[in-house]
Design a protein around this nucleic acid. Sequence first.
RNA 1: GGGCCCAUAGCUCAGUGGUAGAGUGCCUCCUUUGCAAGGAGGAUGCCCUGGGUUCAAAUCCCAGUGGGUCCA
Length: 938
Amino acid sequence: MSELEEEYRLDYFEEEDFVRKECTECGDFFWTRDEDRRTCGEPPCEDYQFIDNAGFDGEYSLEEMREAFLSFFEDQDHERIDPYPVAANRWRDDVLLTQASIYDFQPLVTSGQTPPPANPLTISQPCIRMQDIDNVGKTGRHTMAFEMMAHHAFNAREDLEDPDQYAYQGEVYWKDETVEYCDKFFESMGADPEEITYIEDPWVGGGNAGPAIEVIYRGAELATLVFMSMEQDPDGEYEMKDGNRYSKMDTYVVDTGYGLERWTWVSQGTPTVYEAVYPEMIAFLKDNAGVEHTEEEAQLVHRSSKLAGHMDIDEAEDMEAARDNIARELDVSTADLEALLEPLEDIYAIADHCRTLAYMLGDGIVPSNVGTGYLARMVLRRTKRLCDNVGVDAPLDELVDMQAERLGYENRDTVRDIVRTEIEKYRETLEQGGRRVERLAKRYAEEGEPIPTEELVELYDSHGIQPDMVEEIAADFGTGVDVPDDFYSLVASRHDSGQPFEEETEDEDRFDDLPATDRHYYEDQFGTDFEAVVLDVFEREGEGAGDGDASEGEPVYDVVLDQTMFYPEGGGQPADRGALTTDDTTVQVEDVQIRDGVILHRTDEPVGKGDIVRGNIDVERRRRLMRHHTATHIVIHAAREVLGEHVRQAGAQKGIDSSRIDVRHYERIDRETRDEIERVANEIVMENTSVQQEWPNRHEAEEEYGFDLYQGGIPAGKNIRLIHVAEDVQACGGTHVRRTGDVGTIKILNTERVQDGVERITFAAGEAAVEATQRTEAALADAAEILDVVPAEVPETAERFFEEWKARGKQIEDLKEQLAEARASGGAAGEEVEVGDATAVVQRLDADMDELRATANALVEEGKIAVIGSGADGAQFVVAVPEGVGVNAGEVVGELARKVGGGGGGPPDFAQGGGPDGAKLDDALEDAPEVLRQVRNA
RNA sequence: GGGCCCAUAGCUCAGUGGUAGAGUGCCUCCUUUGCAAGGAGGAUGCCCUGGGUUCAAAUCCCAGUGGGUCCA
């Protein structure tokens, strides 16, 4: 079946007397030293062999196993690399979490654009796989958090014409050595070589593919050896199992994965992986939740775990069937077994989830409604529910801290703080949601109906309330709910709006022949004038940027020079403006962009190809941008100092008058905190330390400063540009002032929450800060002048005025009522008419609605029908009728309002209406008695 | 990044274009030895902000602000 069969005929297998066999169960091909072996050894073809029968020469803890692996490969000339964060989006933008060690080196290293930090290397990389979340705790082997131990080698073909096009050259090692290393490592652990099988299992993923080998020992898949060597290619010579065609690449990469938890588990032979990996935490949780077992029960649990381990229950739906089978085999009822196992499953899951949270929060993920923050929130809430469910009453921040401590994080106080804040938020959500459900349940219970599915979806989608919680509360109120099986797909269907399509701006290859422009804005960040040769000019139709001199529709020109000082838009810094001058003409530069190293100066008029031009940059604009750019570094540094180390940039935009940065933080920034950030920022300005740039090797830079360098994105290349501002170091391509003092001053203008967990800080630097302060002061001064007080007294005065204004409103209301009563009892102005047995008062009163209503009410109190008209704003009527009089006020108003070109209505005893035609008001009132009589007779 | 939901008395919330409500808390009085409680009366409000539609907007529409939630 394998088209890649040849790929697996390794010299190493030959030398070591391996034989290739076909599994009698699944038909896969595998390699073994055991002539008599029939199956590939992987469940379900075979059961776990290692439970109660540990596989190595000793028991290893997680830490011991990790060390054993890394030092083994160090002895084999691999360099040990520190693990990367679990938040993979800190160095790549296509994934959220690190799910394998190779993620650390995608896409720049695997494609050969940048060199690996070492070659070959070994690493134990923490990973998180959310897709396993439902299985955690239940199957005995799934964990959401795990470490993937690995050895990697990055190779490039040796027969290339231009080997230097890749960041690494030649072959380090390939398949034979990889299998040999794996074999040797097993040997070093005291495994029996006869029992190891190597299954042929081609690998496909993410546009790449290659032969791969699964390594099975005692029924457990302990390693996967992937030989990434092909890329998707419609004309490729290999067809892989995904149905696509692939061809060989110039680079080929050894990608291995050894599950640390699995190895630890096999070394101990415990029934579940959890007991091998977190024994202390599980003991603590059991004790805390009061889970105790008799000798007999403990035996049952043990045997059940063993059986569960054997079963192929990767899918949650299989769980119930598996549970039934296990119960039958143990000769107990499924219900009894579940009652015994469920608390344990919860405890296992809690331990795993806490480790997941420790990784996520320890690596600086802030809970939020977006991205990795959302995933962290989901895990946290799930963990909290599990704790409540099983009766663990230890605070969650303590549990997470237990794992964080073990994992060696130094920001544990912040992690605990985040957990506490999140738990508090969740508590509020639940409380609010609970009340909402109670109201609903009460309403539906009264109607004797169950809560409909639609409400259930709404509760979950808009309010985060799980259906089981609704079920519980509904039961308390004596009604039910209908939870459909496809509940979550119903929720999903509310979201299936059309995917926003990516706009592919296919850039013509017209720049391909042009050399990369010489950039002089780094070597002299203050240079503003230069000479250059025009290499080419491209005309673009009708793309005049509305903000420049060229109006829309006019043609614009992209001028390419051999060298420039113009800064192209990038890293949140807008492009420079300025002019290009030849002997004949001066053209305005309205925008500057960079494409594959070629800098385009967009101008309103053309210059001649081959001309020599003088360029000069709009100095004022550039200086303001530089101040703001340096200030941005200062502000984020100050924010980290004040808010904590977890603070990270989530976006930034520099400007002329103000700039903004978005930072990840788990709380709102209040005014006091904001003032503190501003104070620290200005302290850095006043220290007036120098601002330095350097171009170190990227891996050395990462080594020294960590991934916090990449606040504003990940640059490509062997060397990266670093900017040092006081103690802050960032990879940055922008232009900066020489010393922090050159920023002048920093004024924070505003903080707002752009998303949950993301705060936007808007600030101004230098002259822009002074201007902003002056604007604020002007507004205050104007307000003070209006109130006729000094500025300091504005708040107090404003409050007093506001209070007085409210009091007067109330007083006016009172007076209107009194006035209305007086009018009604005085019987003065109105014309009284008889309508059947009742008396009606028809009156014109040019006042507002409130007064009309009050007057009408007062007349009704006297037992009279009130018809009041006002010409204060168009024509308005109020008609009120005492109880027991057969006149419908709504109809009367409708009739009257029609006469003034409008409409009206209301209940039969009190109606309002009106129309725009005020001139006809008196006519309408004159007709009122007639209208009253008609309506009465109707 | 996208979708959805919410904003009304100190608090929790009703309110279907037509006179802003309930429960609780608050104030006063009464009953009671005290506590708990009960009875009677009273005050609660820029109905988040700004536009628009309408004779009329707490209510409908748009934008903003603040909060919540689901998904990728």
